[in-house]
Each structure stands twice: as C-alpha cells, then as structure tokens.
Design a protein around this nucleic acid. Structure first.
Lengths: 116, 116
DNA sequence: CTGGATCCAAAAAGATACTG
DNA sequence: CAGTATCTTTTTGGATCCAG
C-alpha cells in the first residue's frame, strides 16, 4: 500500500515542545527565579533592585522586560513625578509560586546537605 | 583609633545564599532541566542523547559533569567493551523530581494558555 | 559507545554615562 | 525614580576532530 501522506513529517506549528522545556525557556536567565520570588508581592523597581543583591538597573530592566514578554509579570506605570512603576505577577506567574516555594524548600535542604 | 575588628565584614563562609538562588545555580544551563527530567529513570549516555533532541555529545557531557559536581547525578561506568555508562539521580536529584513534575504540569497549562 | 580537547560563535551579563 | 543607550567582558553553547 502506497503512503498517501508523509506520516513521518510533522508540520512546524504542530511540533509539541516538551512542557518542562517550555518552563525552562521562561525561567532561563541568571536572575529570573529570584525576581519572581520577590514578586510574590507587588514591588516597585527600586525595591526589586534592593531585594536582588548584585543586580544592575540595566540587567534588572532586561530581565523584567523578558518576563513581561512571556506574560509572567505585569508592569504598571503611575503617571507621577517622581515616576513610580509597580511590578506584579500575572495569573501564569501566580500559578508558578508553588514551584518557587518548592525550590526554596529544596534549596535549603540542598545547601544543608552540601555543607556536611 | 584602630578598629580591632571589622564589624561590617562577614566571613566568606558565612554568607548565606538565598535558597531559591541556590536552586537557580544548580539548574542553570540550557539543558539541565530536561536532562534531569529524563533521569527520573536510569539512562545510558546514548539514550539521553536521543531523548534530548538537538543536544550534541560534547554539550551533553559537560552538562552531566556539572550535575555530577553539584551532586545531582550519579555516573556508573561498566568496564565493558563497548563502553557502557549509566546515569541516575542522587538523593538530592530524586528529591527534585516533584519540582520537575510541577514544572511539567505548569508548562503544559502555560503553553495552552499562550496559544489562545 | 562514551567520551576528551580545541576552537569559534553567540548570547548573556555587566559597567558606565546619560535622561524625562 | 526608573529607566535607555552603548560598549566591553564573560560565559555558554556548538562544531569538529581525535581516542580508549
């Protein structure tokens, strides 16, 4: 029987990306996890910079822009002088919180284990 | 007056790293999450390379070496010809599985949400 | 089959100065 | 206060060839 279609081929749009890889793509970036962690509560830009030790304004901005693009973070600009900008989690971001919490618990045990 | 101690300084060893940052440091790397995912079951090197689409041997090796160094992965060499090497999760690695599962669930919902 | 060693390219991060 | 623009540096990843 002749093949009337190429069963081995998959249209580009239908290629399913592995869900964990999907997640990987969103949280890749040196600071994204810790930023999301602090965004469990709404934070202002400067506040985030203080909470994340060692990050520069430029990098914080770029990481936040990427998280926005990935619909993990909301950005609200208040038209005031001096400027005020608040960042918070979107629904997708909120749903990621339990994973962040688990990471915190795991990381703590992991650190303790490694010290011994 | 000479200060007899530097009260502002913290000995290197006592600097506490935030637990989520600890976790971030372990899973950073383009392929580590998906590698850990497939290591829920013991896998051979070549098997891993097939399971992780797009990764080269050299990169797979380097990612595995880092995971070993971080005590997430065990490497067992069977003295045979041809060589056979099996990778599996350490206890720390095993304890990370629930987080990987959560990432899978979240990633699936995330992808679905983004398509609409 | 499972790698190691090199070299190169690309991406990510960081430093700095400037701005509404 | 909250950025942007530019430049430099560092870090990663990838391709290729060699080897026990």
């Amino acid at each position: 029987m002749a093949r009337s279609s190429f069963e081995g081929e998959i249209p580009e749009e239908q290629i399913e990306v592995c869900p964990v890889t999907e997640t990987q793509n969103v949280i890749a970036g040196k600071w994204k996890i810790i930023i999301l962690w602090h965004l469990r509560e709404t934070r202002r830009f400067g506040e985030l910079q203080r909470l994340v030790p060692g990050i520069s304004k430029a990098i914080l901005t770029s990481q936040l822009r990427e998280l926005e693009k990935d619909q993990m973070v909301n950005r609200v600009v208040y038209q005031e002088v001096p400027p005020k900008v608040e960042y918070s989690l979107t629904e997708a971001g909120e749903q990621f919180i339990p994973i962040l919490e688990s990471m915190g618990v795991w990381g703590k045990k992991y650190a303790a284990r490694r010290k011994s």
